[in-house]
Amino acid sequence: MREVLEYIARNLVDDPDAVEVTESETDGTVVLRLSVAPDDVGKIIGRRGRTARAIRDVVRAASTRSGVNTVVEIVG
């Protein structure tokens, strides 16, 4: 799932090299923490959180396919 989130984030920001995703697991849920350059946070979140919601929806769809539960956290 990490690759999916990395791919999406790198394609939405101005500074793809600053995109970092760390992965951890708690109680069978995969937690992905996304961090981007400070100037790119707004692009990842979007107006009224619309882009962040879309990222979560697509990562969730990818997770369903692999039969895992995934949570995306965005750290500014």
């Binding site: 394609n11 939405l12 692009k43 979007g46 882009t51 919601r53 879309a54 990222i55 929806d57 396919r65």
Partner: peptide, 20 residues
């Protein structure tokens, strides 16, 4: 899977494409 319930996932793909 890419369409989702009521086209939800498709709407999400549209938003990502728009932003990109």
């Amino acid at each position: 899977l890419l369409i989702g319930k009521h086209g939800h996932t498709l709407d999400a793909l549209q938003e990502l494409v728009r932003s990109h």
